[in-house]
């Protein structure tokens, strides 16, 4: 379907964006990669009067490491996440996630800021930033504000962003040599949104004990779901098949998935248990696997 009649303005700086936002108010919608927004326009699922193109605002670009923190500009495209050497080194979970997002032509346009701001519950990147304990840097005419990723996603397609705030960047704390991360998902077709997925990050010390586990599921709730009880079932324990089974069992209390077009809640719970095993079992020690 064709898009509706709509206005368009391009901001080349944050100051210009603030001016445009003040002028158009709630009638305005930010346009970054547009890979979700423009499809919703075609379906008349959203009805902005004017699109404010932010893709040429230099302050929202770039990937850099400072004081051990990886800062990823909001306009970073999924394809860039997949090939950037700093991302590969400091947040390999994001590099691993990139190929799971839609298709190559979409990854060349879609942005991390857009994905986080849209907050689709089945999307990969919201779950990843929660798993990584990232911080969302929001900016508005009032200045910058930092929101922990865990507090950023507040409900179905809802975020902690105020109406005049935009995402400037994502900051990811440094990774340690003991850090392990993994993202996996189950989808009916390659590139589809996941029926269920898991972004996991944890540390394994020299004894094989788990510390700081974060298992974050997507496609099973109204946003990314941090499985606190499954994490607690792993924390401090040697990662073995008994520990994985305990984490799987704890998911019963962590997850309350709604039925959706893919199937009933129990199917999603089953998939979450399967994903937990698949994500963690490669981290088992060789002796454990041989048993």
């Amino acid at each position: 379907m064709k898009w509706p009649a709509i206005g368009y303005a391009r901001a080349t700086s944050l100051d210009e964006l603030w001016r445009l936002q003040a002028e158009h108010g709630a009638a305005a919608q930010l346009l970054a990669g547009g890979q979700t927004l423009l499809a919703t326009l075609a379906f008349r699922l959203s009805d902005p009067k004017i699109l404010l193109d932010i893709t040429r605002i230099a302050a929202l670009r770039g990937i850099a490491v400072q004081d051990g923190v990886l800062r990823i500009g909001a306009l970073t495209r999924h394809a860039e996440l997949g090939r950037d050497p700093l991302v590969a080194q400091h947040a390999p979970l994001l590099a691993e996630a990139a190929p799971l997002i839609a298709h190559p032509a979409i990854r060349n346009r879609g942005t991390i800021g857009g994905s986080l701001a849209y907050a689709d519950p089945a999307a990969e990147l919201p779950a990843c930033v929660v798993a990584l304990g990232a911080t969302i840097v929001a900016v508005s005419p009032r200045g910058e504000r930092r929101v922990p990723a865990e507090a950023f996603f507040t409900g179905l397609l809802q975020t902690a962003l105020a109406p005049d705030e935009i995402i400037a960047a994502v900051e990811i704390p440094g990774t340690q040599p003991t850090t392990r991360s993994r993202i996996i998902e189950v989808a009916r077709r390659s590139g589809d949104y996941a029926m269920a997925g898991l972004a996991a990050r944890l540390s394994l010390n020299a004894e094989g004990r788990v510390t700081s586990p974060r298992l974050v599921f997507f496609g099973v709730g109204s946003g990314p779901v941090l499985a606190a009880r499954a994490g607690a079932a792993l924390d401090g324990w040697v990662l073995d098949s008994a520990a994985i089974a305990a984490a799987q069992a704890a998911l019963a209390e962590d997850l309350d998935p709604p039925a959706d077009m893919h199937g009933p809640p129990e199917m999603k719970r089953h998939l979450a248990r399967v994903l937990t095993f698949r994500a963690l079992s490669p981290l088992l020690r060789a002796s454990e696997v041989a048993e």
Binding site: Y8, R10, Q35, A42, D53, A79, P104, A105, N108, R109
Partner: peptide, 14 residues
């Protein structure tokens, strides 16, 4: 780089 032409505004391509 390849893109979906139906998800790109011509107006954005100056």
């Amino acid at each position: 780089e390849i893109v979906r032409g139906c998800l790109v505004l011509a107006a954005s391509l100056d």
